[in-house]
């Protein structure tokens, strides 16, 4: 279980998170929606400790994340970054198998490569891309490689930051199914950030909407259409007018 309580984070005068509260039960798929620049990426970076919150507490399975041994803690996580964040000096398979080539999960190179190719297949990529460099791939392909890297060591907790942005609708469907599968099969806890309402409906057990630095609404996916929250309604129907300001 992941629990964030009253988390604040500001960059200078830019108050990004202003008391965010969020609870994600173990084995559930939480989808976070919200306008761009509202701090969704920062929210999950706070959980991973990549960004230090100014105040508030974050617990994973009841333990404060600032007080646990970092290596063991991070070994439980997988993360797909919004921009892919592939290591451009390493070929695709070494990116995917990064964790398996060094550190506590180290295994023989040949075996790591096998696993990498298997993970690539799961995200719809053939073995021919294994030896290419990330820079030789399109943005959508890089995203899928990055997804393969996030799931490679079979983490218990996985964060997906905009997994389908930049993919064609069919590939987006494949990725949605994959994320759903990972959560149900591996029993993983997932937080997915997305703007894509099709993804939301395909992936989510729970939905949370971030607005104004706080979680405005959270509830099971079944309640999303009857949330009764004007902000959520405006967002899921993509209406240009409503309580969320749009500057024009």
């Amino acid at each position: 279980m992941i629990r964030m309580t009253d988390v604040h984070k500001a960059f200078g005068a830019n108050k990004v998170l202003r008391g965010a509260n969020l609870t994600v039960p173990t084995g559930q798929s939480m989808v976070v929606i919200g306008g761009s620049g509202t701090g969704k990426s920062i929210l999950i970076k706070c959980i991973l400790g990549l960004v230090q919150p100014d105040s508030g507490t974050i617990e994973v399975d009841g333990q404060d994340v600032t007080r646990v041994p970092r290596d063991a803690f991070l070994a439980r996580f997988g993360m797909l970054f919004q921009g892919g964040a592939l290591f451009d000096s390493l070929p695709v398979w070494q990116n995917v198998a990064f964790r398996l080539l060094r550190g506590s999960l180290k295994r023989p190179r040949a075996e790591a490569r096998e696993i990498a190719i298997e993970k690539l297949r799961r995200v719809g990529m053939g073995p021919d891309v294994a030896d290419r460099l990330p820079a030789e791939l399109s943005g959508g392909m890089q995203k899928r490689v990055s997804l393969a890297r996030a799931i490679c060591a079979e983490p218990e907790i996985i964060f997906f930051d905009e997994p389908t942005t930049g993919l064609d609708p069919i590939m987006a469907g494949v990725i949605n199914d994959l994320i759903r599968e990972i959560v149900t099969e591996m029993g993983a806890t997932a937080i997915t950030i997305t703007h894509d309402m099709t993804s939301v409906r395909a992936i989510a057990d729970q939905v949370a909407m971030l607005h104004g630095g706080q979680i405005r609404w959270t509830g099971p996916i079944a309640d999303l259409d009857q949330s009764g929250d004007p902000y959520v309604d405006q967002f899921i129907h993509g209406r240009p007018t409503g309580p969320i300001e749009t500057l024009r």
Binding site: L48, L50, F81, A85, L86, F87
Partner: peptide, 13 residues
């Protein structure tokens, strides 16, 4: 800038 340092950290490196 491209979050590769963050990615290293999340990969326990």
């Amino acid at each position: 800038v491209t979050e590769q340092l963050d990615a290293l950290v999340t990969l326990s490196t």
